[in-house]
C-alpha cells in the first residue's frame, strides 16, 4: 500500500514536538520501515517555534527535504499558518484546537480537530498533548500499528506505570477522535 509517507509536527518549543516525531520514527523502525527524522535546529529550539518532519518509507529515503508533506500536525497558531498550506492535496491536517481557534479553508485536505491540551489534562498530565495528537495521526493514517506505538512509548518515554497510563489514555482519546472525524471504524 504505502510507498512513502511524510508528516510534519510543528508547535512551540516545549510542546513535545520533537518527541512526538521521534516516537513515530522509532515505531517505524520497529516495523522494519525506512525512517528519517529531520528537525529544525538552532535558536528555534530555545522556546521558539519547533518543527520536525518524519519520513516513513518502504524503500531507501531520498530527499530529507520535504516541501509538501502528506500530513501536518500543528500545535499552535503560527504553525497552523505556516504548515497547513503546505500539505499535499489529498493530505491531512491535524490541528490542536485547544490553542488554535481557526480551521483550514482548504477543501482538498482532511482536517481533524484535536483538543490536545484538554485531552492531556483530563488524562492527568498537560505534557501528554503531543501523544494525543500522535494518537489522532496514527488513528487516521494507520502508518504504524497502535501496538507498536504503545511499545515505543513504554520503552522510550514512560517507564513509570502512572505516566504510561496517562499517555496511553491520551493516545487512545486522540485515536477515537480521528476515527470519529473521518467516519472510520475503530481498529484494535
Amino acid at each position: 500500500m504505502m510507498h512513502q509517507y511524510e508528516v510534519t509536527f510543528a508547535g512551540f518549543g516545549g510542546q513535545g514536538i520533537m518527541t512526538a516525531g521521534q516516537l513515530l520514527a522509532y515505531a517505524g523502525i520497529e516495523e522494519d520501515k525506512q525512517v528519517a527524522w529531520i528537525p529544525s535546529y538552532g535558536p528555534e529550539m530555545r522556546g521558539g517555534t519547533a518543527y520536525c518532519t518524519v519520513v516513513i518509507s518502504d524503500i531507501p529515503i531520498g530527499s530529507p527535504i520535504i516541501s509538501n508533506p502528506q500530513c501536518a500536525c500543528v500545535f499552535n497558531r503560527p504553525s497552523f499558518d505556516k504548515f497547513t498550506p503546505l500539505v499535499k492535496a489529498g493530505g491531512l491536517a491535524i490541528v490542536n484546537s485547544s490553542l488554535i481557534d481557526v480551521t483550514t479553508d482548504r477543501t482538498d485536505i482532511d482536517e481533524i480537530l484535536v483538543p490536545a491540551n484538554e485531552i492531556a489534562m483530563k488524562a492527568g498530565n498537560a505534557k501528554a498533548a503531543n501523544v494525543a495528537v500522535l494518537g489522532a495521526f496514527i488513528g487516521a493514517t494507520g502508518i504504524v500499528s497502535f501496538d507498536t506505538i504503545k511499545r515505543v512509548i513504554k520503552e522510550k518515554m514512560a517507564r513509570k506505570k502512572s505516566v504510561l497510563e496517562i499517555n496511553y489514555h491520551a493516545l487512545d482519546e486522540g485515536r477515537k477522535l480521528a476515527l470519529k472525524t473521518l467516519g472510520k471504524k475503530a481498529r484494535g
Binding site: 521521534q22 520514527a25 523502525i29 525506512q34 525512517v35 528519517a36 527524522w37 529531520i38 528537525p39 535546529y41 529515503i61 530529507p64
Partner: peptide
C-alpha cells in the same frame, strides 16, 4: 552538512 548531523535515521 548540518542535515547529516541533525537528522535521525536507523
Amino acid at each position: 552538512d548540518g542535515m547529516i548531523g541533525q537528522m535521525m535515521e536507523a
